[in-house]
Design a binder for these strands. Structure first.
Lengths: 145, 145
DNA sequence: ACTATCATGTTAGAAATCTAACATTTTTTT
DNA sequence: AAAAAAATGTTAGATTTCTAACATGATAGT
């Protein structure tokens, strides 16, 4: 008799594997010794900052994590000299997040690598299958509402 | 132009949501105030222990996490009085993991709730879709080897 | 204008996770 | 039998994540 497979566990296990692989790939010194998550977050900030101000609340939504999580991660990146937090005049609650030059340079170098990682992750899937997978994951997401 | 969706991020985000929901559901005092993960692990130990000895290495494989992770989680559960680690005679490296009576009783009460949680998670999917989703997730898993 | 509510961010303390280095025991190789 | 390799578990230090409690600023309702 086969064990019943539980989708919730499968997702968690794969998510774990992805994090490990990302860290393996990007923790090398030539990538600044940062974790996959730190690089992902800086990549997001760089892309968005090209056409608008980025605040902590945007990162929360993009990465699906809580406020306090973003606070801690940004504190860490700030300490390492990769980002700055700049108050804006029109709302005293907000702090605009910008990358330092050091971070910009790093991102330009590793952007292609990050894209490659995600392409590799999806390389066994046809276009139809990718669409189907996203569709099914959305259904799971619905159940979590 | 729509943003390209990246499967790696989607999986991570959903995995996060699942953990939060599990914790919401099971952190209540009537469920022992444990986290979703702690309950999941005890559930696994209980099911397996019915027909064989369970060791730390088995938990590693089942949950797709590293040794040190399991060590820490078991230390935590041991401190709270939910498990014991018992050396076995035939291999001095191994320690058999067993649930205490306290844990057995708790698990008997909440087993049904855990099953319900995972059923709910999958309730928007037909049988075919579940199979398809597992198949596609396996393909992602392959890419991570 | 006051008050209540909402939005944004921080802090503290915990859990779940990792890697790297270590220790011990068992197995394999030579 | 001795040395090398593999398996199992621990510890230390870090990251990513959470909730709960807090603080402050903006908005809405009365």
């Amino acid at each position: 008799m086969n064990e019943k497979r539980i989708i919730g566990f499968e997702i968690k296990s794969i998510s774990n594997m992805i994090r490990r692989k990302l860290d393996d790939t990007f923790c090398a010194p030539e990538f600044g010794g940062l974790t996959g998550m730190q690089n992902a977050m800086m990549g997001y900030i760089m892309r968005q900052a090209e056409h608008r101000d980025v605040f902590q609340r945007d990162i929360e939504k993009e990465f699906g994590v809580r406020r306090s999580t973003v606070t801690v991660m940004l504190q860490n990146l700030e300490q390492k000299g990769y980002i700055c937090r700049i108050p804006v005049s029109y709302d005293a609650r907000l702090k605009k997040i910008i990358l330092t030059e050091k971070a910009e340079k790093l991102q330009q170098r590793i952007r292609a690598e990050i894209d490659l990682f995600h392409e590799k992750l999806e390389e066994n899937l046809t276009e139809d299958e990718k669409e189907q997978l996203l569709y099914l994951l959305d259904k799971i997401r619905q159940s979590l509402k």
